[in-house]
Simulated scan of single mutants.
Amino acid sequence: MSEHIRIYVADLAAYNAGHLHGAWIDATLELDDIQDQVTAMLAASPVEGAEEYAIHDFEGFDGYRLGEYEGLQHAHQIACFIEEYPEFGGALLAHCSDLEQARQAAEDDYCGCYASLADYAQELTEQTSSIPQHLAPYIDYRAMARDMEMGGDVFTLETGFEQVHVFWNR
């Protein structure tokens, strides 16, 4: 995961004139500060009267593909969500259809991070059921996990080796 969540904002007048001119900006700054940096970058343009810009690159969005014309406010909101949930924020946004759906999943449906979904199935079963010792070795937690996922009860995001984030699918 990148330490910085930032965007590269390009000056479109300079770009169209064959110049590379832009600035890397921390996307988690206050929106007014981001806009001030864009305004300063455009004021320093090698092309007279530069006004238009676009996001040409980004770092630290961890799986989420930020669009070129999504706008500073949306980029800022996405960056703040990823900063708030650094373990899985970018992957969750890539999985969900929008920011509000991702926020709901993070706040209401997150079960935790496990080495596997089977480990979560085992923990859930042991916390909610009384299992006789002599039957415990016969429980197939991998099959339970597969059924939970295939049945649509949960979805998972794998963000690294033995880093499986489990969410209830509501």
Rank of each mutant, 00 (worst) to 15 (best):
F167H: 05
F167M: 06
A115H: 10
G151A: 08
A27W: 05
G60A: 04
D26Y: 02
A23C: 06
G152Q: 09
Q77Y: 06
Y120W: 13
C96F: 07
G67I: 00
F155M: 07
D32P: 00
E162D: 15
Q104M: 11
W24S: 08
G89R: 02
H21E: 10
A44W: 02
D98R: 10
D36L: 10
M150G: 02
E87L: 12
G67D: 14
L42H: 04
E158L: 10
V154R: 14
E149M: 07
M150K: 12
E52A: 13
E68G: 00
G60F: 02
A102P: 10
V9R: 00
F58M: 05
A118T: 04
G63N: 06
D36N: 12
Q101V: 15
A27H: 03
H21R: 07
A75N: 03
A106C: 04
I34T: 02
M144C: 07
L42V: 04
M41N: 01
C113A: 11
E126T: 11
A102T: 12
D108K: 10
E149G: 01
G22F: 02
V38K: 05
A50M: 03
R142I: 03
H134T: 10
I55Y: 00
G160W: 03
L157Q: 08
I5S: 04
R103K: 15
E59P: 01
Q101N: 14
Q127P: 00
L157S: 09
V38I: 14
A118S: 14
L92Q: 08
A143T: 10
G71L: 11
E3S: 05
Y53W: 14
Y141V: 00
T125R: 03
I7K: 01
H134C: 07
L99Y: 11
A102N: 13
S129L: 13
L29S: 11
G22P: 02
C113E: 14
E70D: 14
D140A: 06
A105E: 11
V166Q: 01
E87N: 09
R103V: 08
L66F: 06
T39M: 05
F161S: 13
E87A: 15
A91Q: 13
I7W: 02
H134I: 12
H74E: 14
L20I: 05
M144Q: 13
C113I: 10
D36H: 09
T28V: 12
E70Y: 03
R142A: 12
D57M: 00
A54E: 07
Q104H: 15
A43D: 15
Q163Y: 04
Y15P: 00
L29D: 11
V38S: 04
L12V: 14
I139T: 05
H21I: 08
T125E: 02
A105D: 11
L92H: 08
H95K: 14
D62A: 13
S116Y: 03
D33P: 00
A14D: 03
V9W: 00
E51H: 09
R146A: 12
L117S: 07
Q37A: 13
E84H: 09
V38M: 07
E149C: 00
H76L: 04
V166L: 06
